[in-house]
Every structure is written in C-alpha cells, then in structure tokens.
Design a protein around this nucleic acid. Structure first.
Lengths: 124, 124
DNA sequence: CTTATATATGAACAGGTGTTCAAACGTTTG
DNA sequence: CAAACGTTTGAACACCTGTTCATATATAAG
C-alpha cells in the first residue's frame, strides 16, 4: 500500500481505488463480455433488426424476406447466415424453400427492451 | 421461360402473401428500427460493453476506466462520447475529474438479458 | 502568471463489414 | 435426363469504425 510510485514503469494516476476494487470484484468473465458484445454487434444493424422483427411476426422463407425488405435474396441470405451462426434464428427446409423463425424468446425480449429505451430516448 | 409474368419489370417470386401481410400489418416505424439498430450497434463492441459493465458497479472517472480496461484515456474518452450521445451514460464534472454512470435501468436490463442468451447459447 | 493533471477532440490509419455480382448447390418439375 | 426455382457461397469493393497520436481545453496547484 505504498503511496510513492516512482519506480513504476507505468506511472499511476490519481484514481479511485475503492471504486476500482468494487468493479474488479464483480468482473464478468472475459469470454462472456466478448460473447455479449458479439451478440449486440449482430443485433446492431438495421437489415438484421428488420429481419428479426419480421420473424417475430411470422415464419418466413428467404423470398418472403427478400420481398419485405426490398433486398436481393443473396443479401438476405448473407445476413441470415450471421443470425444462424449466433443462434438467433432457426430454420427448416421444406421443398425448395427454407423457412426461418426466431430461435428463442430472449431475442424478442431484447428487441422489446431496446425499443423501450429508444422511445424513451426520443421523448426526453 | 414461358410464364405469365413477362410484363412485370420486377418479376414476382412464389412467396407467401399471408405471412407477408401479417408482417406488414405490425411493421414498426422506420425510425424506430433505425434507432434500435443504432442502440445495439453501440452496445456491440467489447470496449463499450466493458465500460458499461464497470459503470453498472460504480460511478467512475475516465482515469478509473482507463486503468480498469488498460487502455489510453483518449480511447476511453472516445467511446464515452458515443455512449453519451446515445444516452447510455450520464456524467458530472467534479474538479478535474468527470464521473460517469449509467443513464437508466434499461441498460442494465439489456446487459442482463443479453448475458442470459450468451450463457444459454454456450450450454446448448 | 506558469505548470501539472484530467479530459476532450480531430486527423489518419488499419482492420472489419454489408452489398453486389457471378457462380454453385439442392430440390422439384417436365 | 434437363430446365427452373430457391437458396447459398466466395470474391471484390466501397464504406465504416476503433485506436493512436498530437493537440486543445478546463480546472487546480505552485
């Protein structure tokens, strides 16, 4: 607990050790933080948000989504790939079509809670 | 090539009109979708996730965060600027320090719900 | 005043990302 | 079988974003 810091290679600033200790005590797992950021990164793109919103209304094939979003099937498929890899949507093949739907209820919860924040942000 | 669509500029595919109508009926506001994506985009970066997690434990100044994240004050400040602009954190000046904290409880809720998804994703 | 500390900001650069395009794959139909 | 359809995939390209660096601002101390 010595106060002098001159021998330190990296000079210390006048921080708030109690607060820092408090944070360090409840530090989340490094992997969890990374996974969390990854999840939100996937959600953080308007095309993917629109896809997820659409799928929260109905199970849809790539063509349906392509028409709804007015985008090429290829572009939609690329985004669905990402959503699939992150376990946000599931899919089933039926003949020539592949139908997508939301994977679990967490996704809807995140969208709902996010919407609340956005709307509140507007009014204040 | 002989099908009855040749007059359409944009050729229609065999989609599922009922499902599409169902989605269109509950289509969210364009601005809301954009704001939602923007919110998640801000949350979708590991540095910012770590900052928000730290602030969920204690009110911290830039130096504290800089030490916790082992990053330059400049890098931290740049990210805080983004978080501030999106109403995710608030701040108050006290002498030479500027203390940051979470802006509302929605942020903690989003982090918690996101963590649930990530952990569940691991176990399945 | 000058100096030191804490924070903010703008430019620049490297790395990442979404869309387009062309081509492939899988399934159904003729 | 071949042709058509729905979907996927890889490469290319333009755009965006996080960090670094240098510099500026603000407050406190000498």
């Amino acid at each position: 607990m010595s106060q002098e810091e001159s021998t330190e290679v990296c000079r210390r600033r006048r921080v708030h050790p109690e607060s820092i200790a408090q944070v360090r005590a409840s530090e989340i797992n490094e992997d969890t933080a990374r996974g969390l950021a990854e999840l939100f990164r996937i959600l953080g793109e308007s095309t993917r948000v629109r896809i997820l919103h659409a799928l929260s209304c109905a199970e849809l094939c790539v063509c349906d989504l392509s028409e709804l979003l007015e985008m090429s099937p290829s572009a939609v498929s690329h985004q669905l790939r990402l959503l699939r890899a992150n376990k946000l949507v599931r899919f089933r093949r039926s003949g020539k079509n592949v139908f997508y739907s939301l994977d679990d209820e967490h996704v809807e919860g995140l969208l709902r809670q996010g919407t609340e924040h956005v709307l509140e942000e507007r009014t204040s």
